[in-house]
């Protein structure tokens, strides 16, 4: 029965306006939520448990504020919630080293995570963690079935491929063609009472550091036209001005 771990990260709500204050993004008045793809990772982890037994642990690396998303995961059915205490910026090497240590400490055999976090947009953590563990990995899966091992569906050159993945492995999840479950009242009550297992793991120093954040350069105002006939002029500009057609 597999020991299943799912990685969850707290990020700004995707509707939030991002402001930059003194060269850094200022998140002080932004609502924080579980990164959208992590919801698919949690759902896939729970499906794995339903098919194969075992237990699911939701793991996050972050400050105390990040415990809310662990409770959210608990409310929909994960068994254990663990936070590795960390504040401040970590580069991918430092973060992955910490997660790899945590997964080893927890005795994980399969790790699910989001295809990319809504803040970094990187998609580095899953494959990077797998390499550090010496495990197989697949990324951006849109579905999974469990009969003994794990079989995933993922986009692949001009279609979808069904791949068999030997365990142990790290699986990063895209938006699946399934709905994620919502918490019920019992789950929410249990989550309220649940205690978070907080641990600390020393991180190696970061070699990549943030110099600054800035808002994206404002786009110069475009040309605006009224009525469908203007499409002819726009087509002309796409050739003469933009050199595209």
């Amino acid at each position: 029965m597999p020991n299943i771990i799912v990685l969850v990260k707290q990020v700004p709500d995707t509707n939030a306006k991002i402001v930059v204050n003194g060269d850094r993004v200022d998140l002080s008045s932004v609502k924080m939520v579980m990164s959208p793809y992590d919801e698919f990772a949690v759902e896939t982890a729970l499906k794995h448990k339903e098919a194969a037994g075992g237990e699911v642990t939701a793991l996050t690396v972050g400050g105390a504020g990040a415990e809310k998303i662990l409770k959210d995961a608990k409310a929909i059915g994960v068994d254990h919630i663990v936070r590795i205490d960390a504040e401040g910026e970590m580069d991918s090497n430092a973060l992955q080293s910490v997660i790899a240590q945590a997964v080893a400490d927890l005795g994980g055999e399969v790790v699910y995570c989001g295809k990319s976090a809504a803040d970094t947009g990187a998609g580095s953590t899953g494959p990077g963690l797998a390499e550090r563990m010496g495990w197989a990995s697949v990324s951006n899966i849109i579905g999974a079935t469990f009969d003994g091992g794990v079989s995933v569906v993922m986009p692949s050159g001009g279609g979808n491929a069904q791949m068999s993945v030997p365990l142990p492995a790290v699986v990063s999840c895209d938006k699946g063609d399934f709905k994620v479950r919502k918490p019920n009242v019992k789950g929410i009550m249990q989550a309220k009472k649940a205690s978070v297992d907080v641990r600390s793991i020393a991180a190696p120093g970061s070699t990549v550091s943030v110099v600054n954040h800035a808002l994206p350069p404002a786009k110069p105002a475009g040309k605006s036209y009224q009525g469908g006939a203007a499409a002819a002029e726009v087509a002309q500009l796409l050739r003469d001005e933009a050199n595209i057609i």
Binding site: P12, T14, K17, I18, V20, V25, A118, D119, T120, G121, T207, V208, S209, V210, V211, N212, H213, A214, L215, P216
Partner: peptide, 16 residues
């Protein structure tokens, strides 16, 4: 590179 889904740009420097 873009972060926060392109709502901000992040500049980093690397040693090594």
């Amino acid at each position: 590179s873009p972060v926060y889904s392109g709502k901000a740009m992040q500049t980093v420097s690397a040693s090594g």
